[in-house]
Simulated assay, not measured.
Amino acid sequence: MAMPKQDTDTIQALQGLEDSSSSVRLRAALAAGTTPDPRFIDKLIERSAIEPEFYVRDMLTWALTRHSASMTVPELLKEVRSERAQARSQALHTLSKIGDRQAWPAITRALLSDADDEVARSAWRAAVVLVPAGEEPGLAEVLSTQLGRGGREMQLSLSRALIALGEVIVPTLRAAMTDLDPRVRAHAIATERLLRDPDAAFGFAIEEAKRVVALGGTGKEE
């Protein structure tokens, strides 16, 4: 008796996700999202944790968003506790794309300050998407503990996350402008300037903020 075509396609997609060719894996992920099937979920999440190619990981995330959140979110929440950094990062990224606020309790302070930069960045993005109304000031305070971290791209990611929270970040930024660490002060000043002028270039804002700090200022308007 011949196997139903749908089952054959499912088996091929599952096998394709493990193929040595990235183009085959990409097509398999596309197929898994085009025709969602609960049998794909575990494999899509498992592959996300180890997939080396960015564009394939992006397709894996898209495929997961095509499945029922009631089935994907519980499995992704397990992944954010994984010891593997990529598993945590990709799970957080996917949760931010799904946007189910039931995932909010999993966005812990530990994840928001994760030692791995990609995990932390993914956690910041997920947090601003999932934060419940009224809890934005608390999230801003936790995010502010990461001001001054990393290079320009890392700092821009944090600034964008903070700015997405809106005006509630101003008191937190003002407090950070008096921090003992000049990197923190400069990052806080640059972030507030970007909040006021979203079209400003971040690199310029940071350099200008560094000059203010070097001159002993805080960037606060008198």
Results as ranks from 00 to 15, higher is better:
Ala205Pro: 02
Glu135Asn: 12
Arg57Ala: 12
Gly203Ala: 12
Arg196Gly: 04
Gln15Glu: 15
Asp9Thr: 01
Leu139Pro: 09
Leu14Lys: 08
Thr172Ser: 10
Glu167Tyr: 01
Gly216Ala: 10
Thr10Asn: 02
Met59Leu: 03
Asp7Glu: 14
Val119Asp: 12
Arg121Gln: 14
Ile189Gln: 04
Met71Ile: 04
Trp124Thr: 00
Glu153Phe: 02
Gln146Thr: 14
Val170Trp: 00
Asp100Arg: 03
Pro52Val: 11
Asp114Pro: 09
Gly217His: 06
Leu14His: 06
Ser96Asn: 08
Ser68Met: 07
Ile107Glu: 05
Glu79Pro: 04
Ala164Thr: 09
Met71Cys: 05
Ser68Asn: 07
Leu147His: 05
Ile189Trp: 09
Gly166Phe: 00
Arg185Glu: 03
Leu44His: 05
Ala49His: 13
Arg193Glu: 13
Ser113Tyr: 07
Val73Thr: 04
Gln102Cys: 02
Pro137Trp: 01
Thr108Met: 08
Leu173Cys: 03
Met177Pro: 02
Glu79Ser: 14
Leu76His: 06
Asp179Arg: 01
Gln6Phe: 03
Ser144Val: 05
Pro132Val: 01
Ala200Tyr: 10
Val213Ile: 06
Ile169Phe: 00
Arg183Tyr: 04
Ala214Tyr: 14
Gln86Thr: 10
Val129Asp: 03
Ala133Lys: 08
Glu79Ala: 13
Thr94Gln: 04
Val170Lys: 07
Ser20Gly: 08
Met71Asp: 11
Asp199Ala: 08
Asp19Cys: 11
Ala110Lys: 13
Glu207Arg: 11
Asp7Pro: 01
Leu64His: 04
Glu207Pro: 05
Ile98Tyr: 02
Phe40Arg: 07
Ile11Pro: 00
Glu221Asn: 13
Val212Ile: 15
Leu215Ile: 00
Val24Ala: 15
Met1Ser: 10
Ile206Pro: 01
Ile45Trp: 08
Ala133Gln: 09
Pro182Ile: 00
Pro105His: 03
Gln155Val: 01
Ile189Val: 15
Ala190Met: 12
Arg101Pro: 06
Gly203Pro: 09
Ala115Met: 14
Arg121Lys: 14
Leu92His: 09
Val184Glu: 06
Ser21His: 11
Val131Ala: 04
His67Thr: 08
Gly203Ile: 14
Leu130Cys: 05
Ser122Asn: 14
Val213Pro: 11
Asp116Thr: 15
Thr145Phe: 09
Ile45Phe: 08
Ala201Leu: 15
Glu153Trp: 02
Ala31Pro: 03
Gly150Cys: 00
Thr72Tyr: 01
Ala123Ser: 11
Leu64Ile: 05
Glu153Cys: 01
Ala186Phe: 10
Asp58Ser: 11
Arg183Leu: 06
Lys43Ala: 15
Gly216Met: 08
Ile189Asp: 05
Thr34Val: 05
Ile169Gln: 01
Val128Leu: 07
Ser22Gln: 10
Asp181Gly: 01
Arg125Trp: 15
Gln12Val: 12
Arg66Val: 00
Lys5Tyr: 03
Leu64Pro: 07
Gly151His: 01
Ser70Met: 03
His187Arg: 02
Arg193Thr: 13
Arg121Val: 11
Ser157Pro: 00
Thr108Phe: 04
Ile11Leu: 13
Asp19Glu: 14
Gln86Gly: 09
Arg81His: 12
